[in-house]
Design a protein around this nucleic acid. Sequence first.
DNA 1: GAGCGCATGTAAAGGGTTACATGATTCT
DNA 2: AGAATCATGTAACCCTTTACATGCGCTC
Lengths: 185, 185
Amino acid sequence: MSLRHGLLGLLAEGPASGYDLTQHFQTALGTVWPAQHPKIYAELTRLAEDGLIEVESLGPRGRKAYRITGSGLVEIRRWLAEEPVDHTLRQEPLLRAFFFWLMTPEQLDAHLRQEAAFFSAAAEQLRSFAAAKDRGEFGSAPPTQSVRIAIEAGIRLYGALAEWAEWARDAPPVLPERPGAEIID
Amino acid sequence: MSLRHGLLGLLAEGPASGYDLTQHFQTALGTVWPAQHPKIYAELTRLAEDGLIEVESLGPRGRKAYRITGSGLVEIRRWLAEEPVDHTLRQEPLLRAFFFWLMTPEQLDAHLRQEAAFFSAAAEQLRSFAAAKDRGEFGSAPPTQSVRIAIEAGIRLYGALAEWAEWARDAPPVLPERPGAEIID
DNA sequence: GAGCGCATGTAAAGGGTTACATGATTCT
DNA sequence: AGAATCATGTAACCCTTTACATGCGCTC
């Protein structure tokens, strides 16, 4: 149930509408915590019901901006400081790795090349984003500093995966005992 | 819907019961793809209905072992080779990083210390597991080699996160423009 | 005035976790 | 005999995604 706190955290920076928040969850935040608009709108309604946020203003096209309340701020801080961290890792690319032995060497090499390319590109994109931050393009307010730290984690994560995929490509050759035996069903 | 293929992949190694598979998903596999027994039993039933696996034997205490079928093997290989990889990353620890600026310096330091400890321990555990594999304690059959590769990814991932947490601890000090202003609500 | 982007929502279905429920076998 | 472990399953709930649905406002 972290989307709730993700929204609360974003609203701690200032008022925003469901639409605004959806944009956030489609860029930087979305890389580590994906969320689509139906869930966001629903959760905002619940947060308002619980008094953690409130409607700040109504704008054109039915726009509804929310503002975090005092209890909302208390709640996000409580969550950050007291709630145990959920370290769950769920990575399809790593699940697949357990079954690499079912692929032909050609398939595996092609796969790992694609994976390495994907992860390198992801790392690179974050790196250029971080560089812009470091150049001061987004100011140096505390939220911006935190985004910089979060991005650093992404850079290191994707970097590690890219290197892993390259390592896996040539390092341990998968040699069936009876060559080809596993490939025929 | 990758649990389906996770089960198929495990059954490609040999027959197993829902209970056996649950154990698998609580150790190595579980680190990258958690799954609980209710989902596993349900999915096994569906896989059997679809003819991708079949009951191999009935044992004591109602034990029901499944075996992968020809079409099951075709399906897992098709998935590995053709189905696009889902790169979704969802990491609560990284979501929290976006909101570090809402924590007091003391809270943040304590938090990062705990995180670093957690990730180091996770990496270390996988490292010793990998060392056992490298000593040949589990043989050198193709599935074992793949497990080794998967574990290597986990080691690098957790290692990167551990280093990140250490880096974040002392690197960029979060200095509010008006000291303390953001901490009071 | 056509098209795009802004803006919000509902409904249905899928995927996963937790709690509940039960019983057999093995080990001490 | 009692405890631990093996073993399977159902029910309720939660979270998330995808598809459907609608309409306003701005720009060309």
